[in-house]
Design a protein around this nucleic acid. Structure first.
Lengths: 325, 325
DNA sequence: GCTACATCTTTCAAGGTTGTCATGTCCTGC
DNA sequence: GCAGGACATGACAACCTTGAAAGATGTAGC
């Protein structure tokens, strides 16, 4: 590995001078600058970020904790996060908690040891104390953890209302909400609340089904969906709390001989890739991923400066009407 | 931030002694150990990995360069990578190249500056020199870059053969291969070669369609698929080079009034989540993600030790028969 | 001829940790 | 009564970089 010392020796100056050239600071003669530059080039010198981080007490690394990067929505989110991070000169250290509380805390420790400049938590912790004590710029996606931890989220409530109004406009009379799981702290539960509020106001028949915790983790919802459909054979409008669940709903409807959208209209949430790949393509709510990600960095940087931050930032969603309704 | 110094002061010893306790090295009296331990606890001390990395000249960070983490297959791959990394005490620094050669090289530099212990390259570079000169444990997924850069890949050739044989067994007479793109260096082109080899041997009619470079990047293949289907209205068996393309093929077949699998049988490749969510669920080739990932770390660790590594490691695939064939 | 200042470079300490070597005490064995 | 080892801790340099301060040179102004 070539270091400043090597460059300095080759250029016949001290390391400080090389550092000066590197950082364009203080007085340097054009002659010296030239010698140093060419020495850097011949040795293919790369500054050691570890050493710089140690001095500056900042690593420009952001830790991102997600349940699983294999989940299509988190793939979308982290993709945008990484893009915005690179644009702002940050790097992303990735951690998959697998919904495991213990792993999550272990990752928190790991990120602290690695002196990340901030953490974006998109996983579903129940234990908030360690995060509060972390003494690190921290924010969460879609989780209300504490007033001190700003949350960024899509307007789930409005999303739910948009879907309900849309299904009602399509003349659905028997509505059903199939939810992935209902962690109290998850702001995404609001999508159900918004949906139900409109249903209730409309005077139409509606029902709610929740899948079990375990099935949420494995993303296997078959049994719960079957139960919901069995209990409501007359249903003609379904709102699934995610596109993945909606896809499974459509499959099970097909197995029962029901056609989408003719017999039953189905909508999802998230607008991940499968939504447009399904046959019929899925009506869904588009989460403003880019806007959320930009907001996350704004908030993190504000926290780094010690500036106050809003407890909640809710960004507007969009109804995407496709073929399934 | 609490450092060794703080702990030492509180425990009434020197930093060396604290370091000793921390690393269980050398002689330490039980009394001192106790004092140090409790001091570490009260101060909630976390060793600074930046400083350790600087000394040990190893960061235990692995850089992973993928085209896009939003692509479902790379989501699957990176998920497994991160899991295996954590198991072995490594962390993952994520980089999305977005198929951009320039970004890829910028990321390489970034990873070098950050002193990663190794790089896993799952992106499609054409410029290999900088990577060869990187002087870093490096390996690639699915790309034959150079004999010095070990490649890990699924047995794409065999996968293509399995699909061809399966379609033929299902009595398809007019076969079609729709490929995502054909970068010469991509080993995954072998899936087409395997498919075509069997087609040829069978004496059946078959054809090949390639989507354009640009459409590969955006994952929008509509136009190419339409062209392929228009040119071959009599086709009854299609092998798409990825599940995402297969999904779009199924959509377009439906638009043309063709039923899958009754009129046309369709198979994909990768076995990502959509394969089982589609209606009908997709027959596909399962890539041995876990095995590949384990192999990648084995190879990286071998490279770190300076041990020789095989140029290619091809792992067996599996035919997953679902409803679309 | 001297001061004052601008220009250029070096010396030294620091960031948090670890490894080497030195120092010191105590015990065992002859 | 003392050598030789086991045990226990400390001082210091090192990893690579940066910043402050000091030193060195040149030059303009009086």
């Amino acid at each position: 590995m070539t270091t400043l010392k090597d460059v300095a020796k080759l250029a016949g100056v001290t390391v400080t001078t090389v550092s000066r050239v590197l950082n364009n600071r203080g007085y340097i003669s054009t002659e010296t600058r030239g010698k140093v530059m060419s020495a850097m080039k011949t040795l293919d010198y790369q500054p050691n970020e570890l050493a710089r981080s140690l001095i500056f007490q900042r690593s420009r690394i952001i830790g991102v904790i997600v349940p699983s990067i294999a989940h299509p929505f988190f793939g979308l989110l982290v993709n945008a996060l990484e893009y915005e991070a690179a644009r702002r000169g940050y790097k992303i250290l990735l951690a998959n908690s697998r919904h495991d509380e213990e792993k999550e805390l272990a990752y928190l420790d790991m990120l602290k040891r690695n002196k990340v400049d901030g953490i974006i938590l998109a996983s579903r912790t129940t234990e908030t104390k360690p995060f509060l004590n972390a003494n690190l710029p921290l924010l969460s996606y879609d989780r209300e953890l504490s007033p001190d931890i700003p949350m960024v989220s899509a307007d789930n409530f409005e999303g739910g209302r948009l879907i309900a109004r849309h299904l009602i406009a399509r003349d659905c009379r028997n509505l059903l909400y199939i939810s992935g799981s209902s962690n109290v702290r998850q702001y995404s539960n609001q999508r159900g609340n918004g949906f139900l509020e409109v249903c209730e106001a409309s005077g139409r028949r509606f029902a709610v089904y929740e899948t079990e915790e375990a099935s949420f983790n494995s993303q296997q919802y078959e049994a719960s969906i079957a139960k919901a459909l069995d209990a409501h054979p007359q249903v003609d409008g379904i709102f699934a709390s995610s596109d993945v669940i909606a896809a499974q709903v459509i499959r099970q409807l097909a197995a029962r001989g029901k056609k989408v959208p003719d017999d039953v209209r189905v909508a999802g949430f998230d607008d991940v890739q499968i939504a447009s790949l399904l046959q019929p393509a899925l009506t869904t709510i588009h989460q403003p991923v880019e806007a959320m990600v930009i907001q996350m960095f704004e908030l993190l940087e504000r926290k780094m400066k010690g500036a106050p931050t809003p407890a909640k930032t809710i960004l507007p969603v969009e109804l995407v009407v496709r073929e399934s309704t």
